[in-house]
């Protein structure tokens, strides 16, 4: 594995990185006789945002849980490009190393902020937890970074000592994003990040996420059933049905010229205002 900057070639000119950040091959997971997801393969490159859409029960959340290490897949391979050791097989990695990845290089944004936040701990403590988990032991600096991140997700600094239970749904979701991004991860998994929020709050959150993704050069995998969300955020799109990927391609291409009958149905089902 070369140590040169993956975004520059030997002459120093920018180039499209050749090594994918995440490489998935023939991933399958079933629940007994029922298929969760089957034969999923894709590459995700640094700085790229991929959307996974499909109806309820199509296997998108199962896929995301397998990728993030929450579920053990039955078959297939997941390789993640680590900062120091190059590509590693995250399935055979062993639990301590995988949990370490999960709190440094990866982030997971849950649909329900209550699943991703500690509701009994102040906003500052929630953001600081990942810092303390990787060894930060200076209160002043932890608090400084927590305040900085609250600012970046547009939460007032005077709310830093309030508990998330006193926050609105949109604020809780923004707090969850701050808590996840504070350690500077490279890959973010998002499961329906805008679900359960009203449309104006959704728009603001999407705007914020788009800014953060571009600014930090994050790669992200966003699972959603909201086509408007992927239109705004995702570079590429995968459409799933009954546990299989039925169509994949550039977002605009898939949404504007759907090839598979299911994708055509999905796109035509969007309500027009």
């Amino acid at each position: 594995m070369s140590t040169q900057n993956p975004c520059r070639d030997v002459s120093g000119k920018p180039r499209i990185p050749e090594t994918p950040l995440l490489s998935v091959r023939a991933l399958s997971k079933s629940y007994g006789a029922r298929i969760g997801c089957t034969d999923v393969s894709f590459d995700l490159f640094p700085g790229e945002v991929m959307g996974i859409v499909g109806e309820s029960g199509s296997g998108k959340s199962t896929l995301l849980a397998c990728l993030a290490g929450h579920l053990a897949p039955d078959a297939g391979e997941i390789r993640f490009e680590t900062r120091d050791k190059g590509p590693v097989d995250t399935i055979g990695l062993g639990e301590p190393a995988r949990r370490m990845l999960a709190r440094t290089d990866w982030a997971f944004v849950h649909q329900n902020p209550r699943d991703g936040l500690r509701m009994g701990v102040s906003a500052g403590g929630n953001v600081g937890e990942r810092l303390m988990a990787v060894g930060a032991r200076h209160y002043g600096r932890i608090r400084g970074q927590a305040l900085d991140w609250l600012g970046r997700v547009e939460i007032d600094a005077d709310r830093v000592d309030d508990r998330p239970s006193a926050f609105s749904g949109g604020m809780q979701q923004r707090l969850q994003i701050a808590r996840n991004l504070v350690t500077g991860p490279r890959l973010v998994f998002m499961d329906e990040p805008t679900g359960g929020l009203d449309v104006s709050v959704q728009a603001r959150l999407l705007d914020l996420m788009r800014g953060l993704v571009r600014e930090m050069g994050l790669s992200a995998i966003i699972v959603t059933h909201d086509l408007a969300v992927v239109r705004l955020l995702a570079d590429r799109l995968m459409v799933m049905k009954s546990g299989r990927v039925v169509e994949a391609g550039l977002t605009d291409q898939v949404l504007d010229d759907p090839q598979h009958p299911y994708t055509q149905l999905l796109v035509s089902s969007v309500l027009q205002v």
Partner: peptide, 10 residues
């Protein structure tokens, strides 16, 4: 053990 420090932070 990061969580233990969250308690002290609080």
């Amino acid at each position: 053990y990061g969580l233990m420090h969250v308690k002290l932070y609080e």
